[in-house]
Each structure stands twice: as C-alpha cells, then as structure tokens.
C-alpha cells in the first residue's frame, strides 16, 4: 500500500480530475474533457469511474462497487480490491452502509441518501455518438442545443417498430439543457436519476467527466404520444418475491427453464433476510 500514493493517483492528477468534477457539477450534464491517465486496468473496464472515485474518496469513506447490480461480479471484485489495497478504505456490500458507490450498468434499488455519492463507469459518454461519430460535430450540436437528430432517431424507431427501441443507455435531458448519456443502465433505472445523492460519471478512454447534482431535473427523452416507459421483466423475483426490482434472467437447466432474480444482490439479500420469499425459496422457508 505504501508503494503508491493514497488512492493510487498522484496529487496533481487528482487535482486535475477534481477541477473537472467541479466544472461538471456547475454545468450539469455537460461532458468536461479531462486528461485521463493510463490506469493499471484496461480502458473500458471502469478506468473513468476508478479515476473519479480515486479523486473523491477520503479514508473515512465506506466504498461499495457493483457491476450489473451485483457486488460479487468479477470486475466489481477486482475494482474493490484495488481500492482496498491502494486507499485502505473500508468496503461494504450493503448499499445502506456505503458512502461512495461505484457502479457499472445499474442504480441500486434502495433510494440513495443525501450523504451518498454514486460514481458511474461510462464507456461512451456522448449520447449523440451513434448518430454522429465525429466529436467536432457532436460538440457543436451540444453547444447549439441542436438535438433534433436524437428525436428523429427515436421517432424512426417508433415508425419502424411501434416503440422506441432503446432499452438501455436511454438518453436524458438534464436540467432542461444538455442531453446526456446516463451510462448503459437499463431504462428501468432512468427515473432514479433524479435523486438525493451526488452523481458523478467517468469515461476514462473517452476522457470525459460529467455530473448530476442532487435534486436535478432529469427527463428521459420521449414524445407526447409515445411517453417514456421504465420497463422490466414482468415477473417477481424468484428468490425474494420483489415486484419492483430489476431482474436478471437465468437459464437453470438444459431444457431451458428460466428463473428471474434481482439484479441488485444486496437488495435481494436484505429482503430475504427480512423474511420475504419467492417462487424458488417458498419451500425452504416453509
């Protein structure tokens, strides 16, 4: 642990990231360029989130890392271990106990509090990137608030499929100004983006940081006749019976049988510990 500075990054790098975070908070949803460093883990594996967490952590923090909603996915384990080793912070799997949560692809089911911070790992921060690959162009579009292309894309979906066919990384408008990529969370999580906690987004490879302060208006793009819909698998969790949580589908045998379980493993555990049961746990509980 003593071989590296607290939280791995050198102080000058942390200052550079911290300045970017402050500007990100001051202009919600705007992507601040930052000189992302080469981290000892691959680009695309959370280097942006790791850098933002490293610049934000204090030794008093309790740190939680989730990937796909779960604490024990291999990359979450790996990132948690990195900070245990380099920052010596306490870690937890309990959302309730965490002061800083780094996430990939999910927002926890439990409502986050004022005193919590959530850091998202972002692969492609530019919501317009798949419509226009050039940074020089998309930057212009943001500056002119020219988001017609995005609406055209969503509308083409409707005319072709009868519904908007974006199911994750669903674009939002932040505080009535910038269209933002909420990272590849399922659109089920979009309504949670208006929250009490501070939200920070880090894209390492693409060298961007952005932020959503607490209580900021975050609107999922939609149309009057095709309103945004936060969807999930139409099942309760087979382990805890939750009807309100996002579910993973698991293939359980060679015949292709399925079961549905909470993607947020801590949420599921809490519910089971409180005595809730699902289809697959009823017999055991009885």
């Amino acid at each position: 642990m003593s071989e590296y500075n607290f939280a791995y990054l050198d102080e000058q790098t942390k200052r550079m990231i911290r300045r970017a975070i402050l500007k990100g908070l001051a202009v919600p949803g705007y992507q601040v360029p930052f000189a992302s460093r080469e981290m000892p883990m691959p680009y695309g594996w959370g280097t942006g989130g790791v850098q933002v967490s490293a610049a934000t952590l204090t030794p008093d923090d309790t740190f939680k890392v989730i990937d796909q909603g779960a604490d024990d996915t291999t990359n979450a384990v790996s990132i948690r271990k990195f900070f245990e080793n380099t920052a010596g912070v306490e870690t937890t799997e309990e959302t309730e106990k965490a002061s800083l949560i780094q996430t990939r692809h999910r927002i926890p089911e439990a409502k986050l509090r004022e005193d919590q911070i959530i850091v998202y790992q972002v692969p492609i921060p530019e919501p317009l990137r798949f419509l226009e690959p050039r940074e020089t162009e998309t930057r212009k579009m943001h500056s002119l608030e020219e988001y017609g292309l995005m609406h055209v894309k969503l509308y083409e979906d409707i005319s072709q499929h009868g519904a908007i066919s974006t199911s994750y990384a669903y674009p939002v408008k932040v505080s009535g100004r910038y269209v933002m990529d909420p990272s590849p969370i399922p659109k089920f999580d979009n309504p949670k983006l208006e929250m009490d906690a501070i939200q920070l987004f880090g894209a390492g490879r693409e060298q961007r940081i952005y932020a959503v302060p607490p209580h900021t208006k975050v609107v999922s793009l939609d149309f009057e006749d095709y309103p945004f819909e936060a969807t999930k698998a139409d099942h309760p969790c087979d382990l805890c019976g939750a009807e309100d949580s996002y579910l993973d589908e698991v293939i359980t045998d060679d015949a292709g049988s399925r079961m549905f379980v909470c993607s947020d493993t801590d949420y599921c555990r809490c519910r089971r510990e409180a005595g809730h049961t699902g289809r697959m746990t009823k017999d055991v509980a009885a």
Binding site: N5, F6, A7, E11, K14, R15, R18, I21, L22, L25, A26, A55, T56, L57, T58, P59, D60, I198, A211, P213, P214
Partner: peptide, 18 residues
C-alpha cells in the same frame, strides 16, 4: 497532502453540488 486534500475536496465538491 493526500489525506487533507481529499477531505478538503469533498467539502468543496459537496458545496458545489449543493
């Protein structure tokens, strides 16, 4: 430096976020 700056930044960041 690294610890004091971390605490100070958290205070500054929280102020800017709220």
């Amino acid at each position: 430096a690294s610890i004091q700056a971390a605490h100070a930044f958290r205070a500054a960041m929280t102020a800017m976020a709220r």
